[in-house]
């Protein structure tokens, strides 16, 4: 069989510009939880789910995605253990959602190019359209974390690389 791998460019897993670094993080354990969010959070010692651009730290946190849905981060789930459990529908998302770390003093400049949200206005849901793709965004350990469909990571990296934040001067 012909080797067609050369037909496609391989996007980088990290990009660095002036005052900004965008990096695909190693797989982060995640579970999509729908239903009894308070019950799940209490059973797993999770803090209340965060809204858009809310600040968190450490490996365990939760992001509110919708009225009755959140993303529990830092907790893994065996696919066989998913489904309806104690009033909540659990779906393992570690493989489905990539986590991209955005750090540096110009991190919010990338957000300004990717969305038209007002970063000073709190919102109950961390979900947003980021560069045209549905994702969830929060502040984490002084930087930003973007939870995005893993299949869209090459697209996002290409999009980031095309912004002036990563372009070499004169290009």
């Amino acid at each position: 069989m012909a080797d067609r791998s050369g037909f496609w460019t391989t996007p980088p897993e990290a990009l660095a510009g002036e005052g900004i670094v965008v990096r695909l993080l190693p797989p982060v354990p995640q579970i999509m939880v729908s239903g009894d969010l308070d019950g799940f959070a209490a059973a797993h010692g999770l803090p209340p789910p965060l809204g858009l651009l809310a600040a968190t730290a450490g490996p365990r946190y939760a992001l509110r995605l919708a009225r009755n849905r959140m993303l529990a981060v830092g907790i893994g789930l065996d696919p066989a253990a998913g489904g309806w459990v104690d009033g909540a529908a659990l779906t393992p998302m570690t493989g489905a959602l990539a986590v991209i770390g955005i750090t540096g003093e110009n991190a919010m400049a990338l957000v300004a190019r990717a969305t038209a949200i007002d970063p000073r206005r709190p919102s109950a849901s961390a979900a947003l359209m980021f560069a045209g793709a549905t994702a969830a965004l929060c502040r984490h350990d002084g930087g930003l974390r973007l939870h995005l469909d893993r299949g869209l990571v090459p697209w996002l990296m290409s999009w980031c690389a095309a912004t002036d934040l990563f372009r070499a001067p004169g290009n």
Binding site: L52, A66, R67, T115, A116, I117, D118, R121, P122, S123, A124, S125, A127, L128, M129
Partner: peptide, 10 residues
Amino acid sequence: PFCGPRPEYE
């Protein structure tokens, strides 16, 4: 009603 004000493209 849940998230509050957001841009129209959402």
